[in-house]
Design a protein around this nucleic acid. Structure first.
Lengths: 367, 367
DNA sequence: ACGCATTACTGATACGCATAAACGACGTGC
DNA sequence: GCACGTCGTTTATGCGTATCAGTAATGCGT
């Protein structure tokens, strides 16, 4: 027998990667333990079903692996297993914007946790940011297929591309309601119930006439809130109808102190505003109250169907509800993981959390 | 010739992964373009050297790839070529913690940008969080080898595992100074200079006795600040020595108003606190000043060697310095990219930015 | 003593890609 | 007209692991 000093270097790896003192392979463990590579794989993957391994062999392999400091190569494992335990996260704005308040950050908190808990790692794809490799090219989206499935955030997901992925059977989940695209799974928050609950709270305090201030936008998030608002009125046997909703394309301009006083004179004692990304409705409401020289909750009650805009978080805490964003993120990951696993799972709407706040009280005449 | 309906299913894939209309392989692109798989690989890897490909073929392949939505499998790439344009980001705490202020988030802003600019995608590996799959197992770290290289954040990186990666030649960079591990490349902020600069600022205002309040922790970030503080005193020819440093395991308990008055009586006119993740030193200092009924900067000057904790950002802006976290993140990516490319590059310390703030002024007797 | 399970393991192969080597077709020089 | 180079492409092979299909070796019933 002749010594074979053949090392492992037949291939012209890039000079860059040269010199790597490569770590041990299963084959080396096998040699040391006096078994075959397949046996090493069996022992280390700890598959009890199917093939049996004698305790003695198992121990020899384990010892050999330990003494060599064997660590499996994840790339090879994933290749062989035909999946890579990667979930994509695609947002159409920078994933890490400088302004944390209005970013997707809170969602990611939950996404990360749930993904980690399920043994997935996250690949971040950024739609807009960067000018680097393959950033804004039309095929930027196809890059996500490198993951086992992908989560989409943001309103501006290109429908065509998404539809294609769905059609291809690529597991995809959208964070936020998305009904217009048939077959696109999504998770969303239960704005309807939460809005109804806020109305219920006001009704319980004694308010009999309540007005919803909303913007002129038919996003699902807006219509859901209005629906919940109206249902809440109905449940409390309060007057609903068109005059209970003030819809304006420019609330900050239209919601004058005069108008506010007019409502009060008519017996309206409470107002609720929808939450939008600009927070215009809530801003307008607060400003009008201020301008009219009124104080809240003494003269009237205010509630916000969502979380306050970044610049108003510090002001008196608004009564309303919080969207459990981390929980939403987690729910999205659960759904995505299920689809990656080939299940047809469905996630229910995520419930919002009522926030008592300090902007509501009994109506003036009852104080 | 007989039709061969052999599909791709000879292997007993886990039932879980069944049903997937699996994404296209190079082989399928090749078939569509009427060329061999190798040609597809050549075209897509855009290797201009060595083999030449006719423009016509190249175009056919590119078209086919696009129409099928082909995306390379990172695991296979990594296995075959030892690279896949993926950079890992490994943190030993959740990467997206609930408390944004003291998270790694600001670093990631820079990391993401720089990575995108260089054509890398990011894979987030989460070390500690979760209790789920393979979280705290000893080989949890080995997953990162799926990427071309990995960035590590956090103080608690397991030395043994890191050492091993370094020894194996796996490109690794630590964000934050890490001297104790021979050969571990890192990027860090120049706390020494920045701290010295803050002391210089105080000295220039006329302060002659300055005390550093720090916690009982020997992290590099702490010792650097102390060193800079002492060097700053020396440069200003002010008294240094042990009594210039107040070190306490529980600053909030130990830093009593009495102690504060005692210092003032002894002629101390300014205090600087180190920044830590808890912000305990700064909290304690602010509280003691408050409790002693003193006002700042009238009765004494305060400075913070870093950024204020999240709950105190709104209070009077602290004199001190800001750590350019995004820039640090970007620098780390640059270093990592260089190492992935096999270069022995080195990134200099990143300079911190002096923040004038409003908590310092001339000492009382000079006002 | 023979068939037939069962146990304990090995050999071979595929995962998807990159790359060295081989190859045919086509000039080009002499 | 023949060796030789060049171009464009294909063939063959390996990366490290998981798994399936075998194959000896042993046990067991009849």
């Amino acid at each position: 027998m002749v010594e074979q000093p053949k090392k492992r270097s037949r291939r012209g790896r890039t000079p860059a990667a040269a010199g790597r003192t490569s770590r041990p392979r299963q084959a080396e463990v096998a040699r040391l333990a006096g078994v075959s590579q397949a046996t090493v794989s069996l022992v280390l993957s700890d598959k009890t079903q199917g093939s049996a391994i004698s305790d003695e062999t198992r121990q020899r392999v384990l010892d050999a692996a330990r003494s060599l400091g064997y660590v499996p190569d994840p790339a090879a494992q994933r290749l062989a297993a035909a999946r890579n335990n990667l979930l994509g996260v695609f947002s159409f704005t920078a994933t890490f914007p400088t302004d944390v308040q209005h970013s997707y950050y809170p969602f990611l908190v939950g996404v990360e946790q749930e993904a980690a808990a399920r043994g997935y790692d996250l690949v971040l794809f950024t739609g807009s940011s960067s000018g680097g490799a393959g950033a804004s090219r039309p095929d930027a989206l196809s890059r996500v297929r490198l993951a086992d499935g992908c989560l989409f955030l943001g309103r501006h997901a290109p429908v065509a591309e998404l539809k294609r992925m769905v059609a291809d059977g690529f597991p995809v989940v959208h964070l936020g309601r998305r009904d217009e695209l048939e077959g696109l799974p999504w998770v969303g928050a239960d704005y309807v119930s939460a809005s109804g609950e806020v109305v219920g709270h006001l009704a319980a305090l004694g308010h009999r006439r309540i007005v919803l201030v909303r913007e002129d936008d038919d996003a699902p998030a807006s219509t859901d809130r209005q629906q919940g608002f109206l249902e809440g009125l109905e449940a409390a046997r309060l007057p609903g109808g068109p005059e209970a909703v003030f819809r304006s394309a420019d609330p900050e301009g239209d919601l004058t102190p005069e108008r506010l006083r007019h409502w009060l004179a008519e017996g309206v004692t409470a107002f609720v505003a929808e939450e939008t990304d600009t927070g215009a409705a809530w801003h307008a409401l607060c400003r009008a109250v201020d301008a009219a020289g009124l104080t809240c909750p003494d003269d009237l009650s205010l509630a916000l169907l969502g979380s306050p805009p970044g610049d108003l978080v510090a002001s008196p805490q608004a009564t309303g509800f919080d969207i459990p964003r981390p929980e939403l993120g987690a729910a999205a990951v659960r759904l995505l993981a299920a689809r990656v696993a080939g299940e047809e799972a469905d996630e229910p709407l995520v419930a919002c959390v009522f926030r008592p706040g300090t902007t509501t009280g009994r109506p003036p005449e009852q104080r």
